[in-house]
Design a protein around this nucleic acid. Structure first.
Lengths: 151, 151
DNA sequence: ATTTATAGTCAACCAGGTTGTCTATCGTGT
DNA sequence: ACACGATAGACAACCTGGTTGACTATAAAT
């Protein structure tokens, strides 16, 4: 096929996962969560963060990060509190609803991955994951912080 | 390995290709082309199309398609003419500048794919492409792209 | 001939990004 | 001790690319 196939298929593969995730999340009580909110919650992390910090992590301006936080707060996925040691900072923390969404997302992603493993074979899927790691930047934003999914 | 890694890596792999494409396109005389414009040109095709048709192909509203066409026309990548058999329709055709961008994009994608082939091995890359085809829809052009191309 | 469907445009709105400006607070160097 | 530079957050104006709804012109069907 065309030179466009590889990038397009990568994008479509991503979209397939994200679309199924959100259809399923909607069924499981999170109809208003938007694609990427899960990734933002991941980026916020278990210890909380601030707008400036989140902006740096995600590679956007602090104002953009602030708007996203505002949206997530309005939807109830994060809560904001003050930093007792620095009254300029407002700590953003994942709420219990946020943890619920994260836990459900993780389970759904695992199930979707299982579906792929059945279609491609676990071996081939592991090869695919390994190859993707080789062509993408390492150390994206620490995805393996322990204790993220418990609530 | 978190449940989020697979979708994230797919997205990052896509972004790596798109970012390098546009850096290179800018060097080759197309500094103002935006991520996705190439895909839209592909969707327009050699026979031309209309705003309504393009919207259907891309899975967006006719108004959104119209805005994108307007942008591409302003940048000189497409031209609009009337349909002699239906005076309501305005046919959108790829301009010579548009074809130049498409040809260069194809060459750049091919070169990027070659780089991956050298890093992963041609065999593994073909396996990856084959696996991606198995988990993505056949209808490659319905990719409600909005928002996903970032940058 | 009248009705219905279609193509395109305009307007209002939204999300999420940008830059610039401003205030409050912190931390440091003299 | 304190003045000053750096930082966190908020606000405003603006951009892009989506959305829906309303409207006009034209084509097609009954």
């Amino acid at each position: 096929m065309s030179s466009y196939e590889l990038p397009l298929r990568l994008f479509l593969a991503f979209r397939v996962l994200i679309d199924e995730l959100h259809a399923e999340l909607a069924r499981q009580g999170h109809p208003d969560i938007r694609p990427m909110h899960g990734f933002v919650l991941q980026a916020i992390g278990a210890h909380g963060t601030t707008a400036v910090e989140l902006g740096r992590t995600l590679g956007v301006s602090k104002q953009a990060a602030g708007k996203t936080i505002e949206t997530l707060e309005r939807l109830g996925y994060v809560e904001r509190g003050v930093d007792p040691r620095d009254s300029r900072r407002k700590i953003v923390r994942i709420s219990s609803k946020g943890y619920d969404a994260l836990a459900k997302s993780a389970r759904i992603f695992d199930r979707l991955r299982q579906g792929w493993a059945e279609r491609l074979g676990e071996e081939r899927l592991q090869a695919l994951e390994s190859d993707l790691r080789k062509v993408t930047p390492q150390d994206v934003w620490r995805l393996d912080v322990p204790g993220w999914f418990g609530a």
